[in-house]
């Protein structure tokens, strides 16, 4: 009996193995044919785009965050940044699900952000958003603290003009993508306000903020959120060890400020 069984298994295993060999050889041949022949119909690909849904999800509040390291949360011990704390605050206020999409990139300048906004997926997410929060400009002005050495008016004015024209384009683009969501553009603070040159630097940042707010005022539903005052006193308590980015406490301050501006029932009305 046992011998019969063995013989039976042997035949089965052998036949299966032979079949498998043929199958794998076929797969191997197909790989060679597929990978080494070059005239492929790439055009077929292009038709598949633009079929994505851009519908807003009901019952959830989608926050779309974009910008630079501040939005990313650099310096926060928990890595949440103000967007994370903002979400937490809002969750306390509402039963709605909150969906946070954070596409911020460290070191992003206004030019980089404008480029990022050309990507189809970013655009799709922007369309879905109920609330848009952004920080931009810090890297245009400070360039990782480098601008501080050079307080020359002309140089800063030049940067400002470039920045302002980029921001205008960013606003226009966002409005085009999503005419309804309120955009909260979080303003700059002066990380150097406890340093010797603070009078000059503060005035530069104030002016920068003013001009940005002026630009924002030219659009519907764009709120330029000031943070300058938050960090004006005791800046050292709110900065991370790099003396540039906020720390956890600093981010919480920003988040609170933004959270107080977001209303639930009528999102169309700005506060």
């Amino acid at each position: 009996m046992k011998a019969v069984l063995k013989k039976y298994t042997l035949t089965v295993v052998s036949i299966v193995s032979i079949a498998a060999t043929v199958l794998w050889l076929f797969g191997l041949g197909w790989t060679l044919q597929d990978q080494f022949s070059t005239n492929k119909k790439v055009s077929q690909l292009k038709e598949k785009t633009e079929s994505t849904s851009t519908e807003k999800q009901d019952g959830t509040l989608t926050i779309f965050a974009l910008g630079d390291s501040l939005t990313r949360g650099t310096g926060d011990a928990d890595g949440k940044g103000y967007t994370g704390y903002l979400t937490e605050r809002l969750k306390e206020k509402t039963d709605q699900d909150i969906n946070l999409l954070n596409t911020a990139i460290k070191g992003e300048t206004s030019r980089g952000l404008l480029k990022q906004l050309q990507q189809s997926e970013i655009q799709r997410q922007a369309k879905q958003a109920d609330v848009i929060v952004m920080t931009i400009g810090g890297n245009d002005l400070f360039q990782q603290g480098a601008a501080l050495e050079n307080l020359d008016d002309n140089a800063i004015n030049g940067k400002k003009q470039i920045y302002l024209s980029n921001v205008k384009k960013i606003y226009t683009q966002l409005r085009e993508l999503n005419p309804e969501a309120v955009i909260y553009h979080v303003g700059l603070y002066n990380p150097f306000s406890n340093m010797p040159d603070s009078k000059t630097t503060s005035s530069i940042v104030r002016d920068w903020n003013f001009q940005s707010a002026e630009t924002a005022a030219g659009f519907d539903n764009i709120v330029y959120v000031p943070t300058f005052d938050l960090f004006q006193l005791q800046v050292e308590n709110y900065l991370y060890t790099d003396q540039f980015h906020p720390n956890t406490e600093g981010y919480k301050l920003i988040a609170e400020r933004v959270a107080s501006l977001i209303k639930f029932e009528q999102e169309e009305n700005e506060s």
Binding site: G27, L28, G29, T31, K41, Q44
Partner: peptide
């Protein structure tokens, strides 16, 4: 990406198993 093309997953898997076998 000039040679990039779409294959259905079953073909993709068959190709990969061919390579694995090799």
């Amino acid at each position: 990406t000039e040679n990039v093309h779409i294959v259905p997953q079953w073909q993709y898997i068959l190709m990969e198993f061919g390579l694995v076998w090799y």
